[in-house]
Design a protein around this nucleic acid. Structure first.
Lengths: 342, 342
DNA sequence: ATGGCGATCGAAATCGCTTTCGTCAACTGA
DNA sequence: TCAGTTGACGAAAGCGATTTCGATCGCCAT
């Protein structure tokens, strides 16, 4: 009963399987998809033929016929940022529950690439797209043309009718700032500002929340406390922190716009022999898995990443299946996770 | 069972475009793929029609016809492990140079899932597969049947004729251990052993390198210094370190089988008020981006991740394009990266 | 016996694109 | 001027699966 290992040079088709089983491709299809009744005995013969011939269905043909590909696209800036790899991982797990595979595209946060994604020029062998833009902004609505079955993540850059799941950036940033203020800090800096992106981007919104809270307390917003970091990578956090430390009057606390920046900041602090929160308090944003294990463990904002992943995929699913009404605008709940760094 | 409403595929076809431009699909195809000469004037008309109709090519049809899908699969245990997200990111960049998209599958290091990957049961709309197995091992060769165009990463689990790019696990582990020994440490522990996996897995090979070096110096291999960690996640590193610290005679140095485990270990150390390398030295394996920025920065083994990504994709490309000879067996160079943790 | 009705399964028509084969006209060389 | 090339493009045959018609076979009630 040991099957001879044979690599089919020329692909074997459903008709081939059918021929060997003494039926037509129609029946093979029914057996494989379970879409219609087949006599148990026939089913058995077909499955045996499949086994013996090492048959594998040609998904291109199936997709052409059915109009469904079984995969969705996920376009994110950079897998190298903890938040995005975490998000991608969760989205892939959710997608699997819908029987979808996920093809990931890294945009590198480049406007060119993001436009290419929307234009479908890169790859559109998919049933839908989950897209976290970064360099696009209001005014780019026209590039949405032809993109139904699209869910936008993160920045609510478009006013157009698109499904969107986002987070309460401003509120959450205010929450983080308030926490710092409540702990008695007055000289509070931020790392992660980016003047290049739109006013509705996470960078701008989080800066808004920070500013609002400071103004509410009658505190000044010092230019030298708002450090620009366009990439939100580890190194940017490290250099940003170094920049703050070189100030004549360094801050008492730093709000990093994502955890990755915070880890970079923590690194620089430690390298200078300083400690968080004793010398300078650090708070992050994202609550990535590493946040629980950093040295010191990072106090941060949890944006509900799991919720985002689930909502995004479910939303896309209902859109694909046509049982979606008006474009949805979902917002996850953010919460503060207090650990040791602040 | 009629009355089932199918989603209207209001797709524009090449023929539609052709009609509007006054040519046939043949010419539209030529314009779009640039595979044959087309009069500039005609080309212009076609492109205009494409624009006006918002035409997007149906990639399923193209794939069915050409036999190429333009995507490759990447099966890895877990995107949540820094090494794999780093590797995936690099592979995606390499793949793009070949015009490939990448669909990622997380196996969760589960044998069931890994077998499903090889059987093609999950998804096989791809021109090839890059696969890092974890739970498979020698004896599973038969599951390779029908998988040409496959590149195995990491553990050399198969003896069968498959392309493989790996690293010098044993040598590198010996290198790490030797470094610790040369620094004067004698009581050296490891975190990351896994008795469940095959003897050619990274876990076993790295343990071999460690053991060999100890034996060479006439040192004993203590069972209580070999801590099992089947997942290689942050938490496993943390609990592993806690386990070592609770020993009557804790080690002076710990070799973690990957960086993620090392970060977990560093966390536990810090939480107990201990420091690396002063109290206990820590060395990792992988040299992930975070290693440079951890507290303290991690001394680790660089397995040449970029090289692995490039070699894997190039190898797959040559296999797909048929210009591949015998199965290749590639090995990247590992190197020690000395930072502060050891 | 006859007609009706499921349960099965065959024949053949797509799905949208690429590509071979051929046609027609314009262009070349002698 | 004419056969031979070459360039540009139409007609039509697939690629391999799904799926709409039917056709066939039992089996049961009329």
């Amino acid at each position: 009963m040991r099957g001879v290992v044979r690599t089919p040079m020329t692909s074997v088709t459903m008709a081939d399987v059918g021929e060997r089983a003494g039926v037509t491709a129609r029946t093979v299809s029914n057996v494989l998809s379970g879409s219609a009744a087949v006599r148990p005995e026939t089913r058995e013969r077909v499955l045996r033929a499949v086994e013996e011939l090492g048959y594998r269905m040609n998904t291109s043909a199936r997709s052409l016929r059915t109009g469904r590909t079984g995969t969705i696209g996920l376009a994110i800036p950079d897998l190298g940022i903890d938040y995005f790899s975490d998000l991608a991982s969760r989205i892939m797990i959710e997608a699997e529950r819908h029987g979808w595979g996920v093809v990931i595209e890294q945009t590198g946060a480049r406007r060119e690439t993001e436009l290419a994604i929307l234009s479908g020029a890169r790859r559109q062998h998919s049933d839908g797209l989950i897209f976290q833009p970064h360099a696009l902004g209001p005014g780019d609505e026209r590039h949405l043309a032809g993109n139904d079955r699209l869910v936008i993540l993160g920045d609510r850059i478009f006013n157009g009718p698109v499904d969107h799941v986002g987070m309460a950036n401003t509120e959450a940033a205010a929450m983080a700032t308030r926490y710092l203020l409540d702990r008695g800090h007055r000289r509070i800096a931020v790392i992660g500002s980016n003047p290049d992106v739109s006013t509705v981007s996470a960078a701008s919104l989080r800066l808004d929340g920070y500013s609002r809270e400071l103004v509410d307390r009658g505190l000044p917003i010092r230019d030298d406390y708002v450090v620009v970091a366009k990439q939100w990578h580890l190194r940017d956090g490290a250099t940003g922190m170094a920049q703050l430390l070189s100030l004549p009057e360094p801050p008492e606390a730093v709000f990093c716009f994502n955890d990755t920046l915070a880890f970079g900041a923590l690194h620089t602090l430690a390298a200078r022999g300083l400690r968080a929160p004793d010398d300078i308090a650090i708070i992050g944003f994202d609550n990535v898995p590493m946040a629980e294990f950093s040295v010191p463990p990072l106090t941060t904002i949890d944006p509900g990443t799991g919720q985002i992943a689930k909502q995004a995929v479910d939303l896309l699913a209902s859109r694909v299946e046509g049982r979606a009404a008006a474009p949805a605008e979902l917002m996850t709940d953010c919460s503060l996770v207090v650990r040791r760094s602040a």
